[in-house]
Nucleic acid binder design. Structure first.
Lengths: 198, 198
DNA sequence: CGGTCTCTTGACGGAGTTCAAAGCTAGTGG
DNA sequence: CCACTAGCTTTGAACTCCGTCAAGAGACCG
């Protein structure tokens, strides 16, 4: 693993808490580097999530399969995002979601045990994870609000603006399943959006 | 304020972290007791949220008013729940949601300053708030999933089962705005649910 | 080039909205 | 104790958004 990549995690953490060099060293070495090919199932619904991972390169998605068998994408994660079912991970209970890579992906991974001992050794990391959770909660809450108030077209246009990288790298039917609409309807929205832009 | 009430908060915190008696004392005294009548606006959209509050008695709701003027209830909070726009509170940025009491309500309140110094004095509380955020994130995520996969009827029946107290205490149009449907449609769903039950 | 994966298009149907009106219910004042 | 009002809920008709199904058109890969 190139040192330059770990630097991304260092930067990320520094954005939340100030650590001494020693502490930072302890933190960074706690993570395990992993490389996985695209289409790898990192977590299957029903299993207990065994990782909390920082993405160095590549792309993953978290999704939920409902009773009728339809898939709903909970979130996409690109470089410098985290991917995990944190609730399953921390409480060691079965997850209701699945996680898979969409591209070849490089990760820095924490197991429940290493996270627990890391928090013992560097208590400041409690703060970092707390702030991270707060930020994440905010993202999910805003999404919930938008799903309730905006039309599918609004949501699509916002997504386009906010996550152009995801649009470029991810198949459209996954985008649809994130926006909460069928892939056919997304296709029709795109047509309308283009027309409106002319 | 009756000592028995503070006990509720003590129990809540003990559910997350083990504190010494001294630490617990520090924590509990950091909170300020407040009593507010029903229909009190605790936070208005656009303002910075100045409180993180534990509800001792009463009921509040957090809601979002969209561009068209429609209200969407983000969550209800009864006894032993927290109410705040945590992101606005922690980052001291304007909130996009509003918070109001629906009943006469008694609260234990933290200001940003007291929370900050509390975290300095009792670092274990970082952990408590982290775990609390994780739990909350889980709740919101599950709700997002259900909104995407379930019909309005499913969501109503689940709400009925899970939050019977809220049903009893809160007007129906607020329930509708929580479920993401119009109050008229909720009324029709109720009719259908009763019929199906006969 | 043949197959698989992805995206588009159209017809139809159903879930949920909006608008308008009326029916309840619980306080409140006389 | 009744009458009134304000707040809440129900109903119905017309309409819209979006889903499902089915077919076809590209596009990418071995």
């Amino acid at each position: 693993m190139a040192e330059v990549m770990v630097t991304e995690l260092r930067k990320y953490i520094s954005g939340f808490v100030a650590l001494t060099d020693q502490e930072m060293e302890l933190v960074l070495t706690a993570f395990e580097y992993r490389q996985v090919p695209r289409r790898t199932q990192l977590l299957r619904a029903g299993e207990v999530c065994s990782f909390e991972a920082f993405i160095l390169s590549g792309c993953a998605r978290e999704y939920y399969v409902d009773d009728k068998g339809s898939e709903h994408t909970v979130e996409f994660a690109l470089e410098r995002w985290w991917i995990s079912d944190i609730y399953s991970f921390e409480n060691q209970v079965p997850s209701r979601v699945s996680i898979e890579t969409l591209e070849d992906t490089e990760l820095l991974v924490l197991s429940p045990e290493t996270k627990a001992s890391l928090l013992e050794e560097v208590p400041k990391m409690e703060r970092m994870f707390r702030l991270m959770m707060q930020r994440h909660l905010n993202v999910v809450k805003n999404r919930l609000l938008r799903n309730m108030s905006d039309t599918a077209m609004d949501r699509y246009l916002l997504f386009l603006e906010r996550y152009p990288d995801v649009i470029r790298r991810v198949p459209q039917y996954y985008i649809a399943s994130y926006l909460g609409i069928s892939q056919e309807f997304l296709s029709k929205l795109r047509r309308r959006a283009v027309k409106a832009g002319e």
